[in-house]
Design a protein around this nucleic acid. Sequence first.
RNA 1: GCCUACGUAGCUCAGUCGGUAGAGCACUUCCUUGGUAAGGAAGAGGUCACCGGUUCGAUUCCGGUCGUAGGCUCCA
Length: 661
Amino acid sequence: MQGGGHYAAATAPQGRLPSPTPRREPMSESHDLPQDAAPVSATAALTADLPFGSNPVPEGETRAQRLHRLRHSTAHLMAEAVVQLFPTAKVATGPAIEHGFYYDFDLPRPLTPEDLLEIERRMKKMAKRGFPFQKATVSVDQARELFETAGQSYKIEVIDKIVETQQPENVTLYRQGDFVDLCAGPHVSSTSRLKQFKLLRTSGAYWRGDATRPMLQRIYGTAWETQEDLDAYLNFLEEAKKRNHKKLGEELDLFHFHKEAPGAAFWTPRGFAVVQSLQKYWRELGDRRGYQEIWNPMLYKKDLYIKSGHYTHYKDDMFIIHQEDTEYCLKPMNCPDTFLYYTSKRRSFRELPLRISEGGILHRNELAGALNGLFRVRQFMQDDAHIFVTAEQVASEIAEVLDIVRECYSLFGLSYGFTLSTRPEKFMGDALTWDKAELDLKAALDKGGYTYTVDEGGGAFYGPKIDIKINDCLGRKWQCATVQLDFQQPINFDMGYTASDNTRQRPIVIHRAVFGTFERFMGVLLEHTAGALPTWMSPVQAIIVPISDKATDYAFAVLAQLKAQGIRAEVDDRNEKMGYKIREAEMRKTPYMLVVGEKEAENGTASVRTYLEGARPEAKVEDVIAEIAMRIKERTFDVDIKPLRSFDAEEAAPAESDLEY
RNA sequence: GCCUACGUAGCUCAGUCGGUAGAGCACUUCCUUGGUAAGGAAGAGGUCACCGGUUCGAUUCCGGUCGUAGGCUCCA
């Protein structure tokens, strides 16, 4: 990069610029510009002639657009601070993103947390000084010359890309203070508009997201229009941290991870009770909705995956076992072996739609760096099902699946959104079939009254799909459910059915999962409920607290009654005071606490305390049991969900003011 | 897999500028028999992730491995 151009140093007096910071030394603000900083003055000379002028503020912007502009400008401000600290830095790209912004840099050394503080400090300082954002429209050649002189090779690449895709005559540059960037804009009028921001973290990021390109250093930050918004957002981050499902899993003794099996959850008795409650619901739902469950092997000769195409397209993600001369694969998905079931005999149109579910144990060799608690594991179980249908049945069957989605998610107070992904450029089958299928999916969505977004060309090569994203009570989105049409695998497996006219027809396969994986869904639910699960899922649904051992016999008698009704209950007969036991039960978020002493033993009652309501008056044991049993049976969502304010830019409109940049 | 950071008792964390470690909670025993979020005392518990290197001596410094976190990439 020939001398390490400080490409941004365009116009300001040179005395303001810092010298390169020595490796691993704490930042100091008293550095002066090195006298030999040739690239700097060269750049300054170059930009001096450029037509920097006004930066018109767009009219009629939405709040989202305003925030986007604000955040993008903050990214530029940050880049300026980074270039000050690291004059040899190369800057890559720095867009606004949801809730904030980032900027990628190629730096001489890794960033430390102290660097982040120093960068933020400089940003605040420059913001206060109020440098205007100015815009210049220059020819592509002028821009290229500028960034070449400054040694900014990534910017050259961006220019090349723009030229290749858009063939413009001119590009625009934006400048604030000492920093000039290739940028389409728009920006705020002045850095003095940038007040409520915070740098959050650094990370590595491949240039252009390409693992073969250099790893850059990315700094993430957040920016808002008001201090109140910023505080609320930082509070949200804190709350999300508190609700982290790994932390809750530890505190509530639900699951563990061990390095002996990276990426695979070890469920404790308490945690497994929760998983089983969910699986029980899944099986009941399947029964009710006409699904039949099968149970297939976990280990297959590679032939199966050669047939399905996974061996060529998915091999890197599969665990493969060599046994003597044979290659076996741990199954990464249920579809291929479900298809073996389908083709195991001749099928009639009378059997369709054939709804086959299988919650097999799946293994995927996810990248080590991608593993993340229950959200990304290597071993998991999906609430998977494959529905074999005729073309005519697609629309009604999809509608049925969407109705299951509605039922499931409403059970947990989760809202959700749909995305319809249509035919990609490279697709299998004929376009007519696709068109019909897409119309069917649309019709099912419309008929159900669902709103959805369309991702044109976002479908899988084998068929269009509907993805469902959950919104939890912190407003976070999670991809769990998916409904996919598949025209390809029926061909690979030569599936058929005999139609009413005695011809052999090809079925269409619908892949569907609602919870997605039980693991991820558990993680989402834990964070959504902050670990206070509804009674029907709770590991221990009722705990009986004898006041002293004089009441122990009665406590166990009550326990027997609870258990007789299928309630997960325990007696805490440890030699502790009741206050202690209650505290522990509260911290475990136990929905029902039945306090019993001599008085209750005499009356056949219990003093009830619930997690939701606190202490209640004494009640007949039968009545309490009936209440708990009813909540379990009906799967009542007896959870106190306090939705945090949304950070969706469109929803959370501020008190209208002249927020004008 | 890549970047950065981290790994001390079951959990949450102190600490050691290189001389083999400490707290709280949990656990065990004893005392206490107690009305709605921690009663008291004693005890036990650690190859300071693992493997190498430097050193008289490494938990501490260096290198590697494994695992974890946040990202990148990928995805349920």
